[in-house]
Amino acid sequence: MDVKNIVLHSDLKEDIYMKPPPGLFSSPTSDSKYDSSLFLRKTSTDCVLLLVYVDAIIITGTDSSLITSLQQQLKDYFHMKDLGTLTYSLGLEVHNVASGVFLNQHKYTQDLISLAGLQDSSSVDTPLELNVKYRREEGDLLPDPTIFRQLVGSLNYLTITRPDISFAV
């Protein structure tokens, strides 16, 4: 789901204390201890998860009627748009199939390769020359360090979500 006109709800001068809408969660400790933007509701048989990122909300769970009810409660308080089934968010492609949910970052990785201008390059086992001692005062300065910083940040994000490639990155 997408919250419309999120910028109209920013830069408040007053202290704001928030709580979930009535009936939304069964306990005051409904937020996750692992992520402050993840909220969950558990019953004896079902679970619904709500993840917030700026103006985007991802809702999933085991009970579609609880999900529909939650969506309606949110729409009653905010101008929301239902974007349908999740297919892409924060660099993750989501594929729902009969055997489960599969995630990949193919598009995100391809976009990084294009940003770096390496789409026509061939792969190598070791991307850097071995045993080279780099010095700060050697080499040319980058004409625009912004792209370099963006690539480093994006590669850091990629290694957080894909620890199996951390060494290569």
Rank of each mutant, 00 (worst) to 15 (best):
Q72T: 12
Y53E: 02
H95Q: 13
R41L: 07
T109P: 03
V52G: 02
L50G: 01
G23S: 08
F102A: 04
K42G: 02
F102G: 02
L74I: 07
L40H: 03
H106E: 15
S89W: 08
L24S: 12
L83K: 07
L83I: 14
F39C: 02
L38I: 04
L70W: 00
K81E: 14
S30L: 05
H79M: 15
Q105H: 08
L66Y: 01
L38E: 01
M80A: 10
F25T: 04
C47I: 14
D35K: 04
K19L: 09
N104I: 07
S65Y: 06
K42F: 06
Q73M: 12
Y88H: 11
D76A: 09
V54C: 06
G100K: 13
Q72D: 07
D63P: 02
G100R: 10
A56G: 13
Q71M: 14
S99D: 09
L90N: 02
S36K: 15
K42E: 06
Y34E: 07
Q73P: 15
L24W: 05
K75H: 11
M80S: 04
D63G: 00
L50A: 05
S64V: 13
S37D: 02
N96T: 10
T87A: 11
E93P: 04
Y77V: 11
L86Y: 05
A56F: 14
A56L: 10
